[in-house]
Write a protein that binds this DNA or RNA. Structure first.
Length: 500
RNA sequence: AGAGGCUUAGCUCAGCUGGUAGAGCAGCUGACUCUUAAUCAGCGGGUCGGGGGUUCGAAUCCCCCAGCCUCUACCA
């Protein structure tokens, strides 16, 4: 018998020697499921169903439950099936949750064909609501429709899916098997929506600037290279949108933001994925202080909207986002941790102390570099609660204005939460002559060239402005207590695999 | 990119000093009209990540390769 041969599944069954007479069942259940699919088709069910409109989300059925109420349409994936002969209980799962369904030989149409269903299949049902003796809210199925036959079994129902490689490579299985994973990504989506809503309400315009750039800039990072055939040009995936967003400030777009991906050709770690989501915000006539206020209001407001509270993080690393957040100058923070005399030390003495802390210090480094190494490697990770570290050494930030009272430091903040850098913000440098000097000084060491078109834009006049960026993936980690960035990215970068 | 660890059935995991590969869940057959990790009886399922070596004999010891994890490096 040949049914639905277009996709070739009947052929593969034939090749595998599977027929009605001799079902040579093998592990994994795929062949059995192909046979069951064939049986379902023979009893008049569409192999793979079409639209099943008006299906009520299962969570709504639960919320508006009334004994005896008819259910015109509900649909979902069979998760568990408890077959008791003339009576079958099963759990149906859709995007909103799970709901038990019941089929009885005396009250369900086409009852016998239910035996050909498996966990993983999608069905649509019609029936009525009732409560079982055990008190479980349930749909009594009157009629049912096969929507999709799953040819592969689900992951184990009790232990769930633990194998991290499968969880990331086949995220759909993770989402099916682990409800908390699905919930986390729902939260992520809501966070992003609330960020947009917050900024929109304050008059910011969302824009999209090039991801493919001939001159990557706005950060110091190794870019991904690609080739544009039509232009015969080498292109780069952007490492930051900053220089384009500033061109928009020059163009008179006073309040802009972009919420999108950046790409950096760097290694993987618990806190690094090569493509990551970044929010960048620019506001004309503002400055570092204004952005600091904006970012803390933004993060606290979004946390309240999505999670309903400001106490987040994990039990091991609780985080309290109650406002206002601490602000401390870089220099003072170093003194607090390293001793009041730190900034007056001779380089040799500083190196000795750093090495005594177990740090590897390059002999050529000056006091500033040694200090920053200590900040990044030991101090930053101890900053659990939100803190704005301000007044960083100017060498570290070439795109920011220097402080009025001390030109050796720049008017910036670095927001640290949970020991991780979450958001930098600056009083943006709008002096094109000074900007050129700073970029050239930095370009000297690296292969990174000066972006002449950006400087040309600045020469047309950029209003004084504050700017900031928020690492969205890391923010989600803080909010949800996730310990690895891969747990907040649906498809994190993995090495290409040829197996299976 | 460097160091260490891990890889056994579809899934979760046992497998001791080398001696014919195990369990639970999933699957198959049967029983059962209120189960919910359904239960009961029976059955099938493996290139032990891949390749090579040592050995009478390798999941187990050695070498190479691959993937994953952790740390380090580049960075947010």
């Amino acid at each position: 018998m040949r049914i639905y041969s277009r996709s070739g599944w009947i052929e593969s069954m034939t090749e595998a020697g599977i027929s009605e007479a001799s079902a040579s069942f093998t592990a994994g259940g795929r062949e059995q499921r192909l046979v069951k699919l064939q049986r379902l088709v023979e009893t008049g069910h569409a192999a793979f169903g079409r639209a099943f409109p008006d299906a009520v989300p299962l969570a709504e059925l639960r919320a508006a439950f009334e004994e005896g109420k008819p259910v015109k349409a509900a649909a979902g994936r069979l998760i568990t099936v408890r077959d008791m002969g003339k009576s079958i209980f099963a759990d149906l799962q859709d995007g909103s949750g799970r709901f038990q369904v019941y089929a009885g030989k005396s009250n369900t149409t086409d009852f016998d064909a239910l035996k050909f269903l498996d966990p993983g299949d999608y069905i649509g049902v019609e029936g009525e609501l009732f409560v079982t003796r055990a008190g479980e809210k349930t749909i009594r199925i009157q009629t049912w429709t096969l929507l999709t036959k799953a040819l592969r079994p689900l992951p184990e129902k009790w232990h769930g899916l633990r194998d991290v490689e499968i969880r990331y490579r086949q995220r759909y299985l993770d989402l099916i098997a682990n409800p908390q994973v699905r919930e986390l990504f729902q939260q992520r989506s809501r966070v992003i929506r609330e960020i947009r809503a917050f900024l929109w309400e304050r008059g910011f315009l969302e824009v999209e600037t090039p991801m493919m750039q001939s001159q990557p800039g706005g950060a110091t990072a190794r870019p991904f290279k690609t080739h544009y055939t039509a232009l015969s040009a080498e292109m780069f995936l952007r490492i930051a949108p900053e220089l384009y967003l500033k061109r928009l400030l020059v163009g008179g777009m006073d309040r802009v933001f972009e919420l999108n991906r950046n790409f950096r050709n760097e290694g993987l770690s618990k806190t690094h994925n090569p493509e990551f989501t970044m929010l960048e915000v620019y506001q004309a006539f503002s400055d570092r202080k204004g952005m600091q206020a904006l970012v803390q209001d933004l993060i606290a407001a979004v946390a309240l909207k999505v999670f309903g509270k400001l106490q987040l993080g994990s039990p091991e690393n609780p985080i309290d986002l109650t406002l206002p957040w601490r602000e401390v100058a870089y220099r003072d923070l170093i003194q607090e941790k390293m001793g009041a005399d730190w900034h007056t030390l001779a380089v040799g003495e500083a190196r000795k102390r750093a090495e005594a802390m177990g740090m590897a210090i390059d002999p050529s480094w000056d006091l500033g570099l040694i200090t920053h190494e200590i900040y990044e490697k030991t101090i930053e990770r101890t900053l659990q609660q939100p803190v704005f570290v301000t007044r960083l050494p100017r060498e570290l930030v070439p795109l920011a204005k220097v402080c009025e009272d001390d030109p050796s430091v720049v008017d910036v903040f670095e927001l640290v939460i949970g020991g991780k850098e979450i958001a930098p913000g600056y009083s943006e440098l709008n002096d094109p002559l000074e900007q050129r000097k700073r970029l050239e000084a930095q370009a000297g060491e690296d292969a990174q060239k000066v972006d002449e078109e950006f400087l040309l834009a600045l020469e047309h006049g950029m209003p004084p402005a504050g700017g900031m960026g928020v690492g969205i993936d890391r923010l989600i980690m803080i909010f949800t207590g996730a310990e690895a960035i891969r747990d907040v990215i649906l498809f994190p970068q993995l090495r290409p695999s040829t197996e299976h």
